[in-house]
């Protein structure tokens, strides 16, 4: 089978690569584009470690063919912040010990980012329901929820200050 040209916007940059249609988005991101923030956990659409933002939706990139993402706007953890400019969610995960081994963290934060766009002032229960597609093998959920609640407060305070 012939390879196809895949054009996407990834973290604000236009990228183009050749891939077979059967290649999954997570493989193209990690192996062809060297974007290794999104992780491969279960590879069966259960764990959420591979979560990326695609056209404004949180998706599990192990269950999307790169061909489906052709033309899409994709954001990964690398697009949210970096070591020198942490996103407030990253800051709060650090502050509230929202990670132990850290394997699930890129998916958690990428999902939490989209969730807070849709529900900027959630209850703890809404956070748990909104994060239900992401598993933490260390079972560190309490602090993940705390970190997301704290990030929501920080983001809302910053929004108010800006007004």
């Amino acid at each position: 089978m012939s390879k196809m040209h895949i054009k996407m916007t990834v973290n604000g940059k236009q990228v183009e690569t050749l891939a077979e249609p059967r290649e999954l988005l997570i493989h193209v991101l990690r192996e062809r584009l060297d974007i290794t923030g999104p992780h491969i956990g279960c590879e069966t659409s259960h764990c959420g470690a591979c979560t990326v933002d695609m056209d404004g939706k949180s998706v599990k990139s192990c269950t999307v063919f790169a061909a489906q993402a052709n033309g899409a706007d994709v954001t990964t953890i690398e697009g949210l912040g970096g070591p020198d400019n942490l996103h407030v969610l990253q800051e709060m995960f650090k502050e509230h010990h929202g990670l132990q081994c850290g394997f699930c963290t890129p998916g958690m934060i990428t999902r939490a980012h989209r969730f807070l766009q849709e529900n900027p002032d959630p209850t703890e229960e809404e956070v748990r329901f909104g994060m239900a597609g992401n598993l933490c093998r260390c079972t560190g959920y309490q602090n993940i929820v705390k970190a997301i609640m704290a990030a929501a407060s920080e983001m809302n305070a910053a929004k108010e200050a800006a007004q």
Partner: peptide, 9 residues
């Protein structure tokens, strides 16, 4: 049905 990520798609 499923979880948030699956419901988006």
């Amino acid at each position: 049905i499923a979880d948030p990520q699956v419901r988006y798609v």
